[in-house]
Amino acid sequence: MKHFFKLMSFRKILSIIFVGTWLLFNLSCASNSDEKILFFAHSLPTSHPVHKGIVAMQESLNEKSGGKLQIKIFPDGQLGSERETIELLQIGSIAMTKVSASALSNFAPEYKITVIPYLFRDSDHLFKNLEGEVGEQLLASGTEYLLRGVCFYDAGARSFYTKDAPVNSPDDLDGLKLRVQNDQMSVDMANTLGASATPMAFGELYTALQQNVVDGAENNIPSFVSSNHFEVCKYYIFDEHTMVPDVVIIGTKFWDSLSEEEKVWLEEAADESVAKQKQYWKETVDENMKMLKEKGIEFIYPDKAPFVEKSRPVMERLLEDPQLRPIIEKINAN
């Protein structure tokens, strides 16, 4: 097995102790019960539309199973960052998590394609692929790493936002230190476009922006708002360089422990939550855009053609990978 059992942080050790203690307590209380509880940890606040999608899954699963199979949610980074929750899942301390597809590219290489700039033409093109053969292949690709994909959630388009300088073309990115997610594909994307990529945990970003450690970042509108980064950054640039979905994953240890009936309950609950989450996403973006305009955030809609052209080497490099080329070509042809 690859990419885990590394030196654990003190925070992660505390998370494992906490989860283990809670689990032992609840198992002792439910020793005469047929109930199963799946611990689901993620890093987003409860106001986020992705969290609302997870709650929809939780409610649907409880109804379908008659309470026999339940989800207990630990939101807001209570049990660690995205990478930490993935590693907790791999060692069996939690059952499920939600992470950006880019975070999974550190574990399952096929997910690299989700961070290729301008690979997906729009939201319809994205979900046409994610809800077809391409999506099935990606969700299955992490099983070697004990990570089984369950479904994809809408995470919109990611765009740059900056503190002091508007960005109207890739040339305006030169010299800007921009936070990106902690994966090589995100670093390559930002560097290729001309910025100085600075990977760091999302929870550290607000302070980094305040203290001028970075000049800006890139993310979707709901995350820009829920993180309060709009308090520091006054320019949001709709270059929409990537459309990186969120992925709900379950540890293969927990998946394999479920009966066939329980697996059907979980898959049906996940599918139902996807439709609801897309609606929550749209409603949240509309509300956020209105609020940001009232707060005086300047929206910039640059010509995307120069961004597309300058970022092209990222796709060209991945097309040289015999494992990824067929997936990219299938998406381009779809």
Rank of each mutant, 00 (worst) to 15 (best):
F5A: 11
K6H: 14
L7R: 14
M8P: 02
S9T: 15
R11V: 09
K12A: 15
S15C: 13
F18I: 03
T21I: 13
L27C: 06
S28Y: 14
N32R: 12
S33N: 10
S33G: 03
E35Y: 02
F39W: 15
L44M: 08
L44Q: 10
H51Q: 01
M57W: 08
S65A: 14
I73L: 11
Q78I: 15
E82W: 06
E82Y: 04
S93V: 01
M96R: 04
K98H: 14
A101N: 06
A101W: 05
S105K: 12
N106A: 11
T114K: 06
V115M: 07
I116H: 07
L126Q: 11
K128T: 07
N129I: 01
G135K: 11
E136A: 13
L138N: 03
L138G: 01
G142H: 06
G149Q: 07
R158D: 10
T162V: 13
P166E: 13
D171E: 15
Q181V: 09
Q181F: 09
V187T: 12
N191A: 12
L193T: 07
L193R: 09
A195H: 07
A197N: 06
T198W: 06
P199N: 05
P199C: 04
A208C: 08
L209E: 09
N212A: 08
N212T: 01
V213H: 12
I221L: 10
I221V: 15
N228R: 11
I237W: 02
E240T: 00
V248C: 00
I250H: 02
G251E: 04
S257T: 00
S259I: 00
S259G: 09
E262H: 00
K263R: 15
W265M: 03
L266M: 13
E268S: 13
E268R: 10
A269T: 13
A269N: 14
E272S: 11
Q279M: 09
Y280F: 15
E287T: 07
N288P: 01
N288L: 01
L292I: 10
K295V: 09
F307M: 03
S311P: 06
S311Q: 09
P313V: 09
V314F: 14
E316F: 12
P322R: 11
L324H: 09
I327R: 04
I328P: 03
N334A: 13
